[in-house]
Write a protein that binds this DNA or RNA. Structure first.
Ligand code: SF4
Ligand code: SF4
Lengths: 161, 161
DNA sequence: CTAATATAGACCTTTGTTGTCCATAATAAA
DNA sequence: TTTATTATGGACAACAAAGGTCTATATTAG
């Protein structure tokens, strides 16, 4: 249970793009150099980010990448979901076991119209809750918020001198 | 980024053990039957749980497993960490890149004695925050809490009739 | 002793991650 | 138009992790 390196790379690439907003179109060479990741692999990742509308790309001479929307509208969750996929944190695999029938719900939810929960069992309820908490936190942090804090630290450093 | 099936199995096995507290020593056959998982594989998982002090096991005739401590002291986090390992959710892989030197911290933390943070950069700060939130939530839910809620549902169902 | 039970290790298959390489398309500039 | 530059997509491979089986071994109640 760990985020993949690709997610790491994607985040850093986006931070780099956000930091270089003024001079549009950062090429894969520059990104690759800054992050220390091969051009081949990184371009795969950038391609994914483009397909999901996180960045824009233009081919040809002087082409490259730029953020498709303001950095404060690109959340950590967005990036993670593009790279890692949108599968649930927990996905039950044996819902046909004896135990499921004994200890889950079945009875209560079906007849109760005021709660249109599909078939959420007690284990899934805990795990989905965990996922929601995680997502909410990750949604509150954006590429911009990292840049802001970096800038704050930097100017604080200058003031001290 | 998903919990493994083993975690699923472990949680269900523990719930079963918690539910059968009275008649000690539940054998692997019974567990395997209840969960619909092969004895071989499930025994691997139970073995791990024993090594980490979640369950006790006794060999020989009438042997089997039982919870090593009360069900309300076995949290979801405990189980997940035994099965998935205790690696961090995010682990930086390229801390020697150009970008790290430009955008991380270095300067600020080293001189400042009132914050003994090791080398937590801004990206790690966000990710570690996410992990902490997740862990806190998972720590608040135990095997017992699931059993309790199952019982509540059940008796509520009975009252309705 | 014997049957039942857990344990540990070897081994295998499937799947996912990380990565390279090459052919192709798009585009700005000469 | 041609050329150099850049991104894109597919094929492929090395490696690691997950999921699972099988067998030999130790432990213990009866
Ligand atoms: S109780 Fe929930 S997690 Fe368990 S088998 Fe049923 S659906 Fe799956
Ligand atoms: S800034 Fe943080 S996450 Fe990025 S390379 Fe440095 S240590 Fe790693």
């Amino acid at each position: 249970m760990q985020f993949s390196k690709s997610t790491d790379y994607a985040l850093h690439a986006l931070i780099h793009l956000g930091h270089s907003e003024r001079c549009n179109n950062v090429g894969i060479k520059e990104l690759s150099g800054a992050l220390g990741v091969s051009e081949s692999y990184l371009s795969k990742i950038m391609s994914k980010l483009r397909q999901d509308g996180i960045v824009r790309a233009v081919s040809g001479v002087n082409g490259g990448y730029e953020l498709a929307r303001p950095a404060d509208q690109i959340t950590f969750l967005d990036v993670i979901q593009v790279i890692e996929g949108r599968q649930q944190l927990f996905e039950c695999s044996n819902s046909s076991s004896r135990q499921h029938r004994l200890l889950a719900e079945e009875g209560a939810a079906q007849r109760d119209q005021n709660r249109p929960r599909k078939n959420e069992c007690l284990v899934e309820k805990v795990m989905n809750g965990a996922e929601q908490h995680l997502h909410q936190y990750l949604q509150e942090h954006t590429i911009q918020s990292v840049l802001d804090e970096a800038f704050k630290r930097c100017s604080h450093e200058v003031n001290k001198k």
